[in-house]
Each structure stands twice: as structure tokens, then as C-alpha cells.
Design a protein around this nucleic acid. Structure first.
Length: 292
DNA sequence: AAGAGAGCCAACCGCTATATT
DNA sequence: AAATATAGCGGTTGGCTCTCT
């Protein structure tokens, strides 16, 4: 099966995206919804391969993405989930709807991995997992079952999607470098442009442009509510029986119904971190043992 | 003030899983 | 059933920025 890479065709642009390209892509998604990425380059005239478009959307332009520093709680959650799931960043991201798998992966590789290898937990970190009472496969299988169940619940749920894109109250970011400032303002324009087609009730999330770090000068949160829901059902609709590999973060992220901490979270954060943070999807489990 | 090295992150690459023909 | 097309995932890298000397 010699499938040629999608970007094999000549004339495909690579490298950082420009605000104009972002705008084109966002406009396309506005009109057609996420998915059918193959059609994006031809429909929009973007000189990007479909893969690049999808990645740009899911990692950057998708609504509800939180950028900037990870909170202690998020960090702990990542540590626990990484111990539980290994380097399955998409699965981990499904518990943190405001974070992308790429973000989590980067954060792990740049912050946490180092931290772990320095401390006593180094051995476990090297192996990618903490010691577990059961075999990898069994645990992984049960995790997959759980996640599939969750996806099924969400698929069947008619509840409106809580706006995962909450108004960020991040501290004012330091002035960005000149080139980035240009980009940020452009992203701001995109955000403003998008306000028109946002959910009326989601004014709080309107046009968020957070600049948590130097290179995160632009984060456009465009959707909320129903729009976000439509965005979350990106691409092909798959059966709930699909593996966790195919369960996207946004699947779980847009349907977390409960405001309170689930048992899983309590378990995950059992070392007594202050609760009350947002952005962690609530996973109501009937029995914590379900996980093992 | 300038250069070197380190850190960080967006994007790319290669592969697998799933859907479609 | 097989071949092909597409979507998605995880690992890796290139380049920008910051910090240190």
C-alpha cells in the first residue's frame, strides 16, 4: 500500500503560519466546519497541505484552547496521567480540554521529564510509567474501555456544551517582540472578525487572545457553545467503540458536564492540591476500581 | 554590548488506524 | 476482500527568544 504523503505535491508551503493564512483557515472552518481537510487547500487556495491545515486548527486555532503557563493542578494531572497512560498525549489531553496534546507533550518534554529524571522517580519516568499493580495491556485496555464509554456518553448527551473557552484572566502578558506583536494584533483582528459568528451567550469567551508566553502571542478562541460543539465533532464521525487513539481531546473536552471534581480527579490529585481550577474535564466514574 | 548556549514551542515527519471505494 | 484515501497520533526538529558570561 504505497500511500504517497499528502504533502508530496510540489508548491506546498511550510513553516510558520501567517495571520492571513490563519484567517483563511478560520474562515473556511467557519463556513464548512472542521473536517474534510483534504478540501481545504483547494477550496481556500492555501498553499498548505491538508495535514498542516488540520494541525494548525487543532493545535492553535481551535476554540477553547488555553495557552500559557500550566497550573500546579494541571501539572500534577499530567504527571499522574502520564504515569497511567504513558506517552499517549491525545488520551491525556482528553482530560484537559483546554490543552492540546502538542502542548502537553511539549510541557512534559521540556519541564516534567527533566524534573522526574532529576528526582527519585527517575527510573519510573524513564520507563514512561510509574509502577503499576497490573500489566500494561490490561490497564491500557480498561482505560480504553473507559474512554470509549465516555465518548459514547458524550455522543448521546443532548446537554449543551459548556464553554470551555472561558474568559482568561491571565496576567497581562509582557510586551511581545515587534514581530510577534504584529502577529498578535493580527490574531486579535481575526478574533474580532470571528465575534460575529460566535454563540451569542458566549460573550465572555469572545475573541480571546491570550499571550501567555513569548511565542504564544496569538491564540484565537473563536467558538463557544454550539459552535464549539460542532467544532468538536471534527472530521469523520466514528463509532464509540473506537480506540482511545481516535478519541480526540475535543470529543471529551466539549462535553464535560459536571462542575465538580470527579472521583477520578480526586484520585489523580490525591496529594491535596487546592481544587477549584478549571479546564479539567469531569469524568464521572461509578467506581474508581473501574480504572484498574 | 555582544556572543554563546539553553530553553521553549510551533510545525513537520513518519507511521498507524479507520473509512471508503 | 483488497486497495486506496484520509484522519489522527507521537516523536522529532528548526528557529526564535531568553539568559548567562
Amino acid at each position: 500500500m504505497g500511500r504517497p504523503p499528502c504533502c508530496e505535491k510540489g508548491g506546498v508551503k511550510k513553516g510558520p503560519w501567517t495571520p492571513e493564512e490563519d484567517l483563511v483557515l478560520v474562515s473556511y472552518v467557519q463556513d464548512h466546519g472542521p473536517g474534510n481537510w483534504r478540501a481545504v487547500p483547494t477550496s481556500t487556495g492555501l498553499m498548505r497541505c491538508s495535514k498542516s491545515c488540520r494541525l494548525r486548527w487543532t493545535n492553535y486555532l481551535r476554540p477553547g484552547i488555553k495557552r500559557g503557563n500550566f497550573s500546579d493542578q494541571e501539572e500534577k494531572l499530567i504527571i499522574h496521567l502520564q504515569a497511567l497512560l504513558g506517552n499517549r498525549w491525545a488520551a491525556i489531553a482528553s482530560y484537559m480540554p483546554e490543552r492540546t496534546d502538542n502542548d502537553i507533550k511539549n510541557y512534559w518534554n521540556t519541564h516534567l521529564k527533566k524534573k522526574f529524571t532529576k528526582t527519585g522517580a527517575g527510573a519510573e519516568a524513564k520507563s514512561g510509567r510509574l509502577a503499576a499493580p497490573k500489566g500494561q495491556w490490561e490497564r491500557r485496555l480498561q482505560t480504553d474501555i473507559h474512554t470509549a464509554r465516555q465518548a459514547l456518553r458524550e455522543a448521546l448527551s443532548l446537554d449543551p456544551v459548556p464553554p470551555s473557552a472561558k474568559p482568561e484572566q491571565l496576567p497581562q502578558a509582557p510586551a511581545a517582540p515587534a514581530s510577534q506583536a504584529t502577529y498578535a494584533s493580527s490574531a486579535d483582528n481575526i478574533a474580532r472578525l470571528l465575534e460575529g459568528w460566535m454563540h451569542p451567550g458566549g460573550s465572555g469567551a469572545a475573541g480571546k487572545v491570550s499571550s501567555g508566553s513569548r511565542s504564544s502571542a496569538s491564540s484565537v478562541s473563536a467558538f463557544s457553545g454550539d459552535e464549539g460543539a460542532s467544532a468538536s465533532n471534527s472530521g469523520t464521525v466514528r463509532t464509540p467503540e473506537r480506540s482511545t487513539r481516535t478519541i480526540k481531546a475535543e470529543d471529551a473536552g466539549t462535553a464535560g458536564p459536571g462542575p465538580s471534581f470527579s472521583m477520578l480527579e480526586s484520585w489523580l490529585l490525591d496529594d491535596g492540591v487546592g481544587h477549584g481550577d478549571t479546564g479539567l474535564v469531569s469524568v464521572p466514574l461509578g467506581d474508581p476500581c473501574e480504572f484498574f
